[in-house]
Simulated assay, not measured.
Amino acid sequence: MRVGVPIFLFLAAAGFHTALTASLESAEKEDTFGEEVGLEQLSDLQKRDQEEFEAAQMSEAVQDENTEEENDTQEEDMTDRDGNVEADQHESESDEDVDGMRQTREHLEANVEEADETTNLAEVE
């Protein structure tokens, strides 16, 4: 029995060592595999994120272009309206000038006629 105990302890230690070594190698392989798979998954996620980011940028650019076109159209409309308002104002001013000149002329003609009548009456008397 004395010889059996040390042999048994030796075999148990050797078996424990083998099992421990195999377990560590297995865990190391799983970690490496997990990292590789993780990197693949991560790169897939990064690719998807990048694609979504680019799509969002393109959508934003299209919206910006549409907004700029709308602003340009609004500015053109405002310019046309301003031009029309200025033309209308100029036309109104012209009409007012013509009306004012017409009234002045009529007033002067009336004054001339009154002066002629006064002169004619003075001559008649």
Rank of each mutant, 00 (worst) to 15 (best):
E35H: 15
S43V: 04
V85F: 08
V62K: 06
F16D: 13
E40G: 12
E106V: 02
L108A: 06
E91D: 14
T32R: 13
E30A: 15
F33Y: 14
G83F: 06
D95S: 10
L39S: 12
G100N: 06
Q103Y: 03
S43A: 08
P6W: 04
E65F: 04
E69F: 11
A122D: 11
D64L: 05
H90T: 10
H90F: 07
V124E: 13
D99C: 01
K47A: 14
T104C: 04
T73Q: 13
E93D: 11
D97C: 01
V98F: 08
Q57I: 01
V3Y: 15
D49E: 15
E65N: 02
T32Y: 04
A27Y: 03
Q63R: 09
F33T: 13
D44C: 05
F33N: 14
Q63T: 11
E70P: 00
D99K: 01
E70S: 12
A22E: 14
D99I: 00
R81M: 05
S43G: 00
A115P: 00
A87C: 06
H90Y: 08
E25N: 09
D88F: 03
E91K: 06
T79M: 00
E60H: 05
E30W: 01
R81E: 08
F16G: 15
T104K: 07
M78T: 09
T104F: 04
T67Q: 11
A19K: 08
E60W: 03
E75G: 03
Q41H: 14
F33A: 15
E54D: 11
E40M: 07
E91M: 07
T73V: 07
E106P: 02
E117K: 09
F10D: 12
E40Y: 07
Q50S: 05
A110R: 06
F16E: 14
T119M: 08
G15P: 01
A61H: 04
